[in-house]
């Protein structure tokens, strides 16, 4: 049990699509489960990271909480991987970068159609939004980038297998062309 590879996963400004794609490994998960175990992850509901071998980050960084989570992962994971388009480039959530944050907030909480009791949320419990959505490698050092929206189950398997076997992951062309 203690010899298992420990993996932590999280979704920051993402849609959990990458996590779903991970699960698309289907029956191959059974074999994988013999050699890995999950630490902090939506699969386990463990709240905070303990020291891990691999951290998988889905999604970009859109608010202050994302920064804290990302830093916790970096601190605890020997190898940190940006998983999918949003973690790598900001992806879909980063489309808001073309609109001023002020305008986004006003539209959502004050001026938008059907807004009741207009006010900008200000509870200290709520994380504040960054002015722009950022890819994770602008905040912490990232060791590997796993492309795709989402990366396919095959990509996850190829990547993790290589890391577990101590090789540098390298994806064959057929796994990274999308048409």
């Amino acid at each position: 049990m203690t010899n298992k590879i420990k993996i932590a996963t999280t979704s920051l400004a993402g849609c959990f699509g990458c996590h779903m794609s991970f699960l698309d490994m289907d029956e191959r998960l059974v074999d994988l489960a013999d050699i890995i175990e999950f630490d902090r992850s939506p699969f386990t509901d463990i709240e905070h990271c303990s020291p891990c071998d691999i951290g998988l980050i889905e999604g970009g960084v859109c608010n202050s909480e994302n920064i804290h989570v990302l830093r916790e992962f970096r601190k605890n994971c020997k190898t940190l991987i940006a998983v999918g388009a949003c973690a790598i480039n900001g992806g879909l959530p980063a489309l808001r970068n073309f609109v001023k944050l002020e305008d986004c907030l006003l539209e959502a909480y004050r001026d938008g159609i059907g807004v009741d009791n207009p006010q900008i949320p200000n509870d200290p419990e709520l994380p504040l939004l960054l002015d722009k959505v950022r890819p994770i490698h602008e905040i912490v050092k990232v060791d590997y980038f796993m492309p795709g929206c989402p990366p396919s189950a095959d990509v996850f398997l190829a990547f993790l297998t290589a890391l577990i076997e101590g090789r540098d992951p390298s994806l064959p062309y057929k796994l990274i062309h999308y048409d």
Binding site: S64, K100, L101, E102, I120, L128, L129, L130, K132
Partner: peptide, 16 residues
Amino acid sequence: TLNVARRMAQRDDPSA
């Protein structure tokens, strides 16, 4: 990068 959000939420607490 939190300047705008801080100003609009009128917050300056440590977690901001």
